[in-house]
Design a binder for these strands. Structure first.
Length: 417
RNA sequence: GUGGCUGUAGCUCAGUGGUAGAGCACUGGAUUGUGGCUCCGGAUGUCGCGGGUUCAAGCCCCGUCAGUCACCCCA
């Protein structure tokens, strides 16, 4: 029989590693709370239609990466490939806009895309993201970009690059698309195979192709920033000014596009430069999507958001001081005392101590060895004499210092540090 | 989805077609109720899985699964 194992591209997190995940999530929650974000929790499953309409029919995500199936009631369902669409659906469904002119939401959770797994890319992966509804920017755009930088910095991730661009609004994209096509068509035969295929369908993608022959051509292509409508151009200028004022470093990258159709105006991406990331260096992607809410049937409301790939952060995050997960480890002499040991542990736990013991027993030596490996700073010895006296021997493992204390005083003694 | 590389103990890896190995980790002990260091001992394998070649396969061949890297794309 074949060995049972987790599904390809979907990984377990064991307790030792969960500590690092907690740090990622706790740091994020604490930070966004300081900006006034509240959490939204949406289902992992949505109508397929939601993603098709928001992300875009012609995108790679929708075309070939979604986990989609027919439910028994003949409705097509999909495991969410990203968080923005679900949050927007919830925001519309609950008419939040009618209550709050501006809402700031965050989410943390698993997303699903059926791609070929690689380093930093899994079929179940975790994103933390923020969405702001009802503020047309550009200052809130700058604030959001800075939030991401501060989050990464809090995790010890400094070696990053912040790329910003603007896709304009309204007819900008169409006008630019025409101009770009006009430029690219004469070069069509020189382009890479992939780019030739992309040419008519989504010419913007040709610009960030990695094929050298494409890059050479993209070099001299018209730039979208030259085609921005007046309002979008001003929006972009104000964004840069705000970033400068905060001292947030960034690079204008006119060729930055992104795989999702819903973006308008501000677009940004944060890339890590650590060598541990392989080819998947994008740590965070985000942008403004001023038309999406309306297109999904909601009120005409501007919005902006980003998503951070937590799996990738884990690869480049600095290690932090390991903290002991226990305060004390009970060492019990003799089988007869194990029942009493449970009563002692119960008392200490009620007092807030984290206490473990090896209830299988074993020699003092082996119990001490386990105490040593448990990460608990103190071994708590219960023997006949201590049971008689209502005390414990409290031994500090790092120094070897040992003293006998009444059980009532033990909690205070071992939790002080 | 395409191509390359790799699968041997829990982990990191040796292993020339002829008896399955090391280090770490785990575990027992070194005389009475005290860990770490040291010393002595012990357990642990479907050699990823399925076929094939051969007297004989961990080793060669084919397939498959998984991991990994690059591409594609993205977080």
């Amino acid at each position: 029989m074949a060995k049972l194992r987790s599904v390809k591209g979907m990984n377990d997190v064991l307790p030792e590693d969960a500590v690092r995940w907690h740090r990622l999530e706790d740091t994020f929650r604490e930070l966004v709370a300081r900006y006034g974000f509240g959490e939204v929790r949406t289902p992992l499953v949505e109508s397929t239609d939601l993603f098709v309409r928001s992300i875009g029919e012609a995108t790679d995500i929708v075309e070939k990466e979604m986990y989609t199936w027919m439910d028994k009631s003949d409705k097509s369902l999909t495991l969410r490939p990203e968080g923005t669409a679900s949050a927007a659906r919830a925001w519309i469904q609950h008419s939040v806009g009618g209550q709050h002119p501006v809402s700031k939401w965050f989410y943390v959770g698993p997303m699903y895309r059926r791609e070929r797994p690689a380093k930093g890319r899994y079929r179940q992966f975790f994103q933390a993201g923020c969405e702001i509804y009802g503020d047309p920017g550009p200052f809130v755009d700058a604030e959001l970009i800075d939030l991401v930088v501060r989050y990464l910095s809090a995790l010890g991730i400094q070696d990053i690059e912040v790329l910003v661009n603007s896709l304009g609004a309204g007819e900008t994209r169409e006008r630019y698309r025409e101009a770009l096509l006009e430029y690219l068509r004469p070069h069509a035969s020189e382009l890479s195979e992939d780019s030739q295929r992309r040419l008519e369908r989504n010419p913007l993608r040709v610009l960030d192709s990695k094929a050298p022959q494409d890059q050479a051509i993209a070099e001299n292509a018209p730039q979208i920033l030259d085609y921005l409508d007046e309002e979008s151009a001003q929006h972009f200028e104000d964004l840069k000014t705000a970033l400068d004022a905060m001292g947030t470093p960034y690079v204008v990258e006119p060729r930055l596009v992104r795989g999702l159709d819903y973006y308008t105006r501000t677009l940004f991406e944060v890339r890590g430069r650590g060598g541990d990331l392989g080819a998947n260096a994008a740590l965070c992607g985000g942008g403004r999507y001023d038309n999406m809410i309306k297109e999904l049937g909601g009120p005409d409301t501007p919005a902006i958001g980003f998503a951070i790939g937590l799996d990738r952060l884990l690869l480049v995050m600095a290690d932090s001081e390991p903290k002991p997960s226990l305060d004390g480890f009970l060492v019990v002499r003799g089988k007869e005392l194990r029942g009493q040991a449970l009563a002692v542990a119960q008392k200490l736990r009620d007092a807030g101590c984290r206490v473990d013991a090896d209830l299988r027993g074993g020699s003092m030596k082996s119990q001490f060895r386990r105490a040593d490996k448990s990460s608990a700073p103190f071994a708590l010895v219960l023997g006949d004499a201590e049971a008689e006296a209502g005390t414990l021997q409290v031994k500090e493992l790092a120094t070897g210092d040992q003293q006998e204390l009444p059980i009532e005083q033990v909690a205070d003694a071992i939790m002080r540090r």
